[in-house]
């Protein structure tokens, strides 16, 4: 079990969200999109310059910027 920033996940890795530290406006939106504590997320693809991430959560896929993923902490099982 180690904790990481979500932006450090590699393609195909799965993590469990444990903390969100973005500012209120962005945090609210992330929560509304389903990025709540305890949610499992998977990185499906990372764009060529590594600035956008395609992630899967619940049963849909979402593109997010790297800067936002930096504020999300995840826990991954080894």
């Amino acid at each position: 079990m180690i904790t990481k920033k979500m932006s450090d996940l590699k393609t195909g890795e799965v993590g469990k969200i444990i903390n969100l530290s973005a500012d209120v406006r962005i945090k609210r939106r992330l929560l509304e999109l389903g990025l709540i504590t305890g949610q499992m997320v998977k990185v499906l693809s990372i764009s060529p310059l590594k600035n956008s991430y395609l992630i899967a959560l619940k049963n849909y896929s979402l593109c997010l910027r790297r800067s936002i993923l930096k504020s999300i902490e995840v826990e991954i099982e080894l």
């Binding site: 499906l44 990372i46 060529p48 395609l54 899967a56 896929s61």
Partner: peptide
């Protein structure tokens, strides 16, 4: 996973 399909493995590959 809705949205992401097998084709994307190639279309979104680095």
């Amino acid at each position: 996973i809705y949205g992401y399909s097998k084709i994307d493995k190639y279309c979104l590959n680095k």
